[in-house]
Computed example of a mutant assay.
Amino acid sequence: MSRTAPSRRGLLFGTAAVSAGALLTACTSNEPKQQEQPAAGNTPAAEDKPGKPVTIGFAGPQADHGWLNAINQNARSRAATYSDVTLEITEGSNDTAAQIGQVQTLINKKVDVLVILPADGKALTQVGLQAMRAGIPVVNLDRVFASPQAYRCWIGGDNYGMGLNAGTYIGEQLKDKPNAKVVELAGLDNLELTRQRTQGFDDALKNYPNITKVARQAADFTVESGQAKMAQLLQAQPAFDALWNHDDDQGVGALRAIAQAGRDDFLMVGGAGAKSAMDAIKAGTGVLKATVLYPPTMAASAIDLARALGQGKGVGGLAELEIPSSLTLYSAVVTKENVDDYLPTGFN
């Protein structure tokens, strides 16, 4: 479930694309006869007419988490909107050796472009270099390779910004409350992304001297861990004013623990952008008041970038002839006021 951003922060770039259906190992030729659901949100511009045929190899992770499953769905859905794109999809794997083998198979098939969300960025750096040296440009999705020579373009989320925006939202809600207390339900502490999210959150709270973070508990990005760790937090902290939970999947368990404890005396902010979280925010009847996005639509944008690379084009809206080398997505805060705008991007 590791999702890390590189130290280079590119321009903000976003798109929205969501499709229903499971991801299968397949070679998908996107002809009009397919009954693929169109991508929601920002679809390709009508004037972007079909061009040179491009075969894109996509190597993603095992879909054992809502966000990761949404990554795979977004890639497939976006490719289906292009009649000039054929998508070669590998079976998702969290085993680095298996994923290296899958990428090498795509290289041997001589795909035009590769989109890779590595199970481990450092471990897959060499196969990224192998592809680039073979003349196959690589779009590195979210978990960054150890060398910039291993990819032509990186696109991913902003973990520090995610924490910063969560902390700022909570700070604004509590800025007039004396001696306010907040708690944090983090992800896995051995992941750099977790440390970045916590750092951003802590930095935001420095702007609100009336607020103190009184507790922090690390969970495992699962429903079960979220419930168990949240129960521990609730028992240890009989009173606080706000909770930031790093991940909406573990947030499902956290909300169960909160309901079981009969607690409704604080506000909660989630993370990532699950549909269940957005539904709860829209209903407005519980403690969950906002979620900070870590958009899985980045996979749809990666397909757009791969197609542009394969056709030798730049990005629409930019003057440059080439696509940028790094694109960082913005972590928007979804509240009851804007939730309808983001619901189409919510993932299960």
Rank of each mutant, 00 (worst) to 15 (best):
T125I: 13
D279V: 15
S77E: 03
A119E: 06
Q232G: 13
K282T: 12
P344F: 12
N30C: 13
F13S: 02
R133P: 00
N348E: 14
S225F: 07
F13P: 00
G346H: 07
Q99G: 09
L329C: 15
D265A: 02
D220C: 13
A290V: 05
A70G: 04
G316M: 07
I107G: 02
G270Y: 06
I107N: 04
Q227T: 14
N30I: 08
V334S: 01
R256D: 12
A261R: 03
E31Y: 07
L129R: 11
P118H: 01
N30M: 09
G167L: 09
D340H: 07
E91A: 14
S93Y: 04
N30G: 10
N140V: 03
Y330D: 12
M278P: 12
I71D: 12
V127F: 01
A180V: 08
A308R: 15
Q196E: 10
A17K: 07
D142C: 01
D158F: 09
D264E: 06
L321C: 00
A80P: 05
A63D: 12
N140F: 04
L234F: 00
P295K: 02
G314A: 09
L293I: 09
L164Y: 10
V138F: 04
V103Q: 09
L321W: 03
D279G: 11
S2A: 12
R76E: 02
I303M: 05
L188W: 01
P296K: 04
Q104D: 14
L205M: 09
Q62A: 13
V333I: 15
R133F: 01
A299E: 05
D220F: 13
L233Y: 04
D112T: 03
I56V: 15
A219G: 15
R195Q: 14
W244Y: 15
Y151Q: 14
K275G: 06
N108L: 08
A274E: 11
Q73R: 15
R256E: 10
Q235W: 00
V339D: 06
V138N: 08
A261P: 02
N94G: 07
L288H: 13
E91Y: 13
V315N: 08
N338C: 14
S326M: 05
S2R: 11
K213M: 11
I116T: 06
A332E: 14
G10N: 05
Q126A: 14
G51I: 03
D220K: 14
Y294Q: 15
S93T: 13
Q173T: 07
N179H: 09
N108S: 13
P209S: 08
G273V: 03
L188G: 07
D247L: 09
G316T: 08
D340V: 03
L124C: 00
S7L: 03
P38D: 02
E88G: 00
A283W: 01
G312H: 10
A20G: 07
Q34P: 01
Q99I: 09
I303Q: 04
